[in-house]
Each structure stands twice: as structure tokens, then as C-alpha cells.
Amino acid sequence: MEPEGKKKFKKIEKIISNVIMWLELVLALFILGAVILSCKDIVSLIYKVYVTEALGSYNVLQGLLSHVLLLVVGLELAMMLIKHHPGNVLEVMLYAIARKMLVSSSTTVELLLGVIALGLIFFIDKYLHIKDTEKLIK
């Protein structure tokens, strides 16, 4: 039989855990709402790419890619808050590094570090990360 104090501690621990889960869900919904509201900006950026002359369209296209990749990072972050799988953390990091490499004007050293970081993430995902434990059990 468990002592009374231990039962109360477990009950408080469960309540705090539930509150944290609900707060994470609310934060994920806020991120999702912000991403949905930002989709209108994608439409205007696509139109700008269409109407801008060839020489100026590079900067507009770079802005479009930056915006889209930022929204993808936001969606992956919301997914990470909801699902709590290690693979989601890897995906958030993957998209964030890819966005940094594709969008910002990086030096050669920054690009090399980005490539190494992406390679490390792919290595971890392939060799160290167990994707589906159900498939391994069957």
C-alpha cells in the first residue's frame, strides 16, 4: 500500500502534466492560426514574382522562399508540440537549417557548416532514430 503523501504527489504530477499538455496544444493552435493567416502573403508574393521584371524577381523569389519555409518551420513546430516524437525535432531542425542556407546570404564557412549539420541530421534519422516501433515489433 502506498503512503498518502505519495498518492497526492502523483495526483499533483498528473494535473501539472495535463495542464502542460493543454498549454502546448493551445500554443500549437496559435502557431497554426498564424500560419493560416500568413498564407495570404504567399499569394501576394507569387503575384509579385509574376509582375516583377527579370532582374528584380530574384529578391522577390527569395522573399517568397523565405516566407514559405518559415511557414513550414512553424507547422513542424506545431506538430512537434502536439505529437512529442523525436523525429519531429529532427524535422524542425532540418527545415530551419535548410531555410537558413537557402534564404540568407551565407559565407562559405556558414554553408559548409549547414551542409555538415544537414548530413548529421540525416545520419541521426537513418541510423540512430527508431522511426516506427510498431513495425519493429511485428
Score class of each variant (00 low, 15 high):
residue 80 M to N: 08
residue 88 N to M: 13
residue 24 E to Y: 11
residue 99 R to S: 15
residue 98 A to H: 03
residue 27 L to Y: 04
residue 26 V to A: 14
residue 100 K to C: 08
residue 68 V to R: 03
residue 110 E to C: 07
residue 66 S to E: 14
residue 33 G to M: 06
residue 9 F to R: 09
residue 113 L to R: 10
residue 9 F to V: 08
residue 134 E to W: 05
residue 41 D to K: 01
residue 80 M to K: 08
residue 110 E to Y: 04
residue 26 V to K: 04
residue 112 L to I: 13
residue 66 S to C: 11
residue 21 M to F: 14
residue 37 L to K: 07
residue 52 T to M: 05
residue 134 E to K: 10
residue 133 T to N: 07
residue 91 E to L: 14
residue 14 K to Q: 15
residue 20 I to N: 11
residue 58 Y to H: 06
residue 121 I to E: 01
residue 11 K to R: 12
residue 99 R to W: 10
residue 27 L to R: 03
residue 97 I to E: 00
residue 136 L to A: 09
residue 106 S to N: 15
residue 129 H to T: 08
residue 66 S to Q: 02
residue 43 V to K: 00
residue 41 D to N: 06
residue 59 N to A: 10
residue 32 L to V: 12
residue 109 V to R: 10
residue 19 V to L: 15
residue 114 G to W: 03
residue 110 E to F: 08
residue 25 L to I: 11
residue 17 S to A: 15
residue 56 G to M: 03
residue 58 Y to M: 11
residue 28 A to M: 06
residue 41 D to L: 05
residue 71 L to T: 02
residue 110 E to D: 14
residue 55 L to G: 06
residue 117 A to N: 07
residue 100 K to M: 12
residue 10 K to D: 13
residue 3 P to H: 09
residue 10 K to W: 13
residue 99 R to V: 05
residue 57 S to V: 11
residue 34 A to R: 05
residue 134 E to T: 10
residue 136 L to N: 13
residue 72 V to M: 10
residue 28 A to T: 07
residue 98 A to T: 12
residue 45 L to K: 04
residue 48 K to C: 06
residue 7 K to S: 06
residue 56 G to Y: 02
residue 59 N to Y: 13
residue 103 V to F: 07
residue 127 Y to P: 05
residue 39 C to F: 09
residue 11 K to P: 01
residue 37 L to S: 09
residue 4 E to N: 11
residue 24 E to A: 14
residue 50 Y to Q: 03
residue 40 K to S: 11
residue 116 I to V: 15
residue 17 S to F: 14
